[in-house]
Write a protein that binds this DNA or RNA. Structure first.
Length: 860
RNA sequence: GCGAGCGUGGCGAAACUGGUAGACGCAGCGGACUUAAAAUCCGUUCGCCCAAAAGGCGGUGCGGGUUCAACUCCCGCCGCUCGCACCA
């Protein structure tokens, strides 16, 4: 009897796998007709070290990758590093390390840690986005996009992060704060590089419908983000002026309920009037001081100022409406101006109530009475029937909208339009540690592309981080260059690309990561894409996934790839839950690592001081709260398999799992138990196709259970029900342990069950599986063995236990042949003694027999 | 405010298209082995009634409904989580 020693076993098998090269993805030619499966986990940012919390994401992808491989797929399961980004520069400033050295040292450390997990990854395809051999191609594509009109420059108000000293995309502003720094965002006007994401707005929205293997939640979030609304855009003529005010509305049917027009504080007209009207200038000033955080918005009252202008109603030139500046009008949405219809819009109602503007009802809710219906207290925002609206009267809202638009078009005042919430993606970042934008500014020629032969435009390495701002711009010589057009003195663009650009196409690069001439070979990309299974956190539901969808379309339209033709990079997406852990705080208020505490007499104490520890919320493992469990130490103590098994076993994969000592203990115990059983069996297991000796009783029952387990676990892995698959494995182990005896039948059944168990746990605990595989007399690898096939006859049930209910309450059980005739089952049920007892003195009204399921007798 | 999801034992959770609620794990309890502990193994565990067994009653956040049958479907509440946030 030998105890399972993971410290020897795990490294041994990893070494053998590597030597045999079993994790290498085959070329399309080598694959010879095998179907392909591209399994990918969102690649990590090399922040320093990996903790067990990170492992869940990779463990899930690895289960799928190994499962697909066992099922005969040519699997691509690569790993890379999202390696550009601010933390490297912060480290440079804090510790004086060069971002490059810091990043590569982290990659080195994290690669070693990831390898400890025994992931079936094709490491030959590893890439880092900060490597010039990677970003060179990104620059090439940037130029191609530029040529195609998908890249442009625009002077724009931008979100400026005062702490990180850089521009942020709208998507990176969370509650008015920088997503990374947490500092309140300011606005600045800057010349920006933009990606024309809106060129694909319609397609990006429509295609969401075809992403049936994405979580509904993510699809909804993307739809909302893109935010398409249909409506009308039209002009109001300003009284005593040639000028007009352009507005957007989704409800032109309520035009006869208009009582004012409102402009955004930074609308050009508002600003113009502010020059001569101090109260308007004051209003603008007041708006600028309003915070944009959640709390601020909630308590921000609507306010405005009368601009002193009048406009004519498009349907009735004699009807004049006042023009106001209002704080609730957004300059970035629509035209930055709207007409207020207080009767049928919440904001307009609040505004009109405050400033005593007319509130007119023009839409009658279904069932309401025209004579008594009022909107004085509450606006009605739903659909109904137009009234008080001249030629619209009597039309249902939908028709009234169409009719109103037709009228606006006839008058030449406006037209139907579509409005998007989605805006183009500003990608300029005033940082050093990012992909340089391959453009040159020439005083004579303007902004010109860097010549393709000069790519990559590489980052200089001799940079200083001694002052705030962009070190590239401060570099003494780097930006000096000759204009490729006129040959005169010119300057390089010093902005770098948002790191979300790097991650918007890395999955395509994995198809052909060593290609020097091109981003990737078209044929290879066509072969591997789309990613069949993508696994990552929900936090990327909008940003990364939207950008990747945009990029794939842009790459397709610039001729880099043909497939996926629909431009969808990720066929199936799974968003996994986090690993959470209790947080601990010392008496002095410092966060403590779990290992800095211990349980003593049921209370948790600080090891250093012996004082009680304050136990905080159970949160996502994070460095800042120190509620992390280091991977290396854990693997040394318990092994990678225990970590993998545990993070997949306790909770459904989409839900968070709490890392607990007892859970670890359970997984550890299971590993030992499996090994003990295999080891104790002490002889080779039968080959999968070996004929079984005749048997009945417990041995036969074990065979049945094992073959059913194959069916269950197979379906569970397919459907991402890892926790249920794990439970089935426990069940199988319990059954194997129960079967005693050393006769031929028992030995066969046990050996077969152990072989099946080994194969079923192999995607989850690959090291243990190999050790068992070898002990059972197989070679070379459990990891390369075909997935076990269930014998349909064994897995099938020939008898079923049927519950018998009387009036919906279970009273008895009977054994019946599977598929037994209804009449037979019915008789058996009615005659059952405990059923008869309940039927005494009652009349049977009805007997419901659901085949192989249940019998219900209705009596009274 | 709008939208989505969730709510099941002491805990994490199972339950396929409505068909035996609580699989499996943790913790607990009892036992075996041990001088003892750890480890391991075996048994047991939703609550209530009954001395116990047999058995019965109740039970999936709350209140109603549909159905022979509801964790599952419908209506109305309550609570939690996430996303969006003055989008005209």
């Amino acid at each position: 009897m030998s105890r399972y020693n993971h410290r020897e076993v795990e490294p041994k098998w990893r070494e053998r796998w590597t030597r045999a090269g079993i994790d290498r993805a085959l070329s399309p030619e080598e694959a010879r007709g095998k179907p392909k499966a591209y399994i990918l986990e969102m690649f990590p940012y090399p922040s320093g070290r990996i903790h067990v919390g990170h492992s869940r994401n990779y463990a899930m992808g690895d289960v799928i990758a190994r499962f697909r491989r066992a099922n005969g797929y040519n699997v691509l399961h690569p790993m890379g590093w999202d390696a550009f980004g601010l933390p490297a520069e912060n480290a440079a400033m804090e510790k004086g390390v060069h971002p490059k050295n810091w990043t590569y040292a982290n990659i080195e450390a994290m690669r070693g840690q990831l390898k400890l997990l025994g992931l079936a990854i094709d490491w030959e395809r590893e890439l880092a986005t900060c490597d010039p051999s990677y970003y060179k191609h990104q620059q090439t594509m940037f130029l191609a996009f530029w040529k195609k009109g998908l890249v442009y420059r625009k002077k724009q108000k931008v979100n400026w992060d005062p702490v990180d000293q850089t521009v942020l995309a709208n998507e990176q502003v969370v509650d008015g704060k920088g997503w990374r720094s947490g500092a309140p965002v300011e606005t600045r006007e800057l010349e920006q590089w933009m990606f024309r994401v809106t060129a694909y707005a319609d397609d990006l929205l429509d295609a969401i419908g075809s992403l049936d293997k994405w979580p509904d939640k993510v699809r909804l979030m993307q739809s909302n983000w893109i935010g398409k609304s249909h409506g009308a855009r039209f002009k109001f003529d300003i009284v005593d002026s040639e000028a007009k005010i352009d507005v957007f509305t989704t409800r032109p049917d309520t035009l006869f309920g208009a009582s004012f027009v409102a402009l955004a504080p930074d609308h050009p007209l508002t600003k113009e009037i502010a020059l001569r009207k101090p109260e308007v200038a004051q209003f603008i000033e007041a708006c600028a001081h309003l915070g944009t955080s959640e709390a601020d918005i909630e308590k921000a009252e609507k306010f405005g100022v009368d601009l002193g202008l009048k406009v004519r109603h498009p349907f009735d030139p004699s009807w004049e409406l006042p023009v106001w500046g209002a704080n609730f009008v957004l300059s970035q949405y629509g035209t930055g101006a709207l007409y207020g219809c207080p009767g049928h819009d919440e904001s307009d109602h609040a505004f009109a109530s405050k400033y005593k503007l007319p509130i007119l009802p023009v839409v009658l809710p279904p069932g309401a009475d025209e004579a008594t219906f009022s909107v004085a207290q509450e606006p009605f925002v739903g659909d109904g029937v137009a009234f008080n609206s001249k030629f619209l009267d009597g039309l249902p809202s939908r028709e009234a909208i169409a009719r109103a638009i037709a009228e606006l078009e006839k008058l030449g005042a406006g037209e139907a339009t579509t409005q998007w919430r989605l805006r183009d993606w500003g990608v300029s970042r005033q940082r050093y540690w990012g992909c340089p934008i391959p453009a040159i500014h020439c005083a004579k020629c303007g902004v010109v592309p860097a010549p393709e032969k000069d790519l990559p435009v590489a980052l200089p390495e001799d940079v200083k981080f001694d002052k705030p701002g962009n070190p590239l711009a401060h570099h003494p010589t780097w930006k000096q260059v000759d204009c490729p057009q006129c040959g005169g003195k010119a300057e390089r663009e010093t902005d770098t690309l948002d790191t979300f650009v790097d991650s918007a196409w890395y999955f395509a690069r994995f198809a052909d990561p060593q290609n020097e001439a091109r981003p990737f070979d078209k044929k290879l990309a066509n072969y591997w894409l789309p990613v069949d299974q993508y696994v990552g956190g929900v936090e990327h539901a909008v940003l990364h996934l939207l950008y990747a969808r945009f990029f794939t379309r842009a790459m397709r339209d610039c001729g880099y790839l043909d497939s996926p033709a629909d431009g969808e990079p990720f066929k199936s997406l799974f968003t996994q839950g986090m690993v959470v852990h209790e947080t601990y705080k010392s008496a002095s208020g410092q966060w403590l690592l779990p290992e800095e505490t211990e349980l003593k007499d049921g209370a948790r104490i600080d090891v250093a001081t012996g004082q009680a520890v304050e136990i905080g919320a159970i949160e996502k493992m994070s460095k800042s709260k120190k509620n992390v469990v280091d991977l290396d130490a854990f693997v040394t103590d318990f092994g990678a398999d225990v970590a993998r098994w545990f993070v997949l076993s306790d909770s459904p994969p989409e839900r968070d799992v709490e890392w607990t000592a007892s859970g670890v203990k359970g997984a550890w115990g299971f590993v030992q138990r499996v090994w003990t059983l295999v080891d104790a069996h002490g002889r080779p297991a039968p080959e999968p196709d070996e004929a079984a000796p005749a048997m009945q009783g417990e041995a036969h029952a074990l065979r049945q259970l094992a073959h059913r387990a194959i069916q269950h676990v197979t379906a569970d892995i397919e459907h991402f029900r890892f926790n249920v698959a794990v439970a089935k494995c426990y069940e199988l182990v319990n059954a194997i342990a129960k079967l005693k005896g050393d006769d031929e039948a028992a030995v066969f059944a046990r050996g077969e069950a152990l072989r099946i168990l080994t194969q079923l746990i192999s995607p989850f605990m690959p090291h243990l599986a190999e050790e068992c595989w070898e002990r059972l007399g197989f070679e070379p690898f459990a990891a390369s063995a075909p997935w076990p096939a269930a014998d349909p006859e064994l897995a099938a049930r020939n008898t079923v236990t049927l519950p018998i209910q009387v009036n919906g309450k279970k009273r008895a059980e009977i054994e019946a042949a599977k598929g037994a005739a209804e009449a037979e089952v019915r008789e058996q049920a009615l005659q059952h003694p405990s059923v008869a007892q309940f039927l005494a003195g009652q009349t049977v009204r009805k007997v419901i027999v659901v085949q192989d399921r249940i019998v219900n007798i209705v009596a009274n």
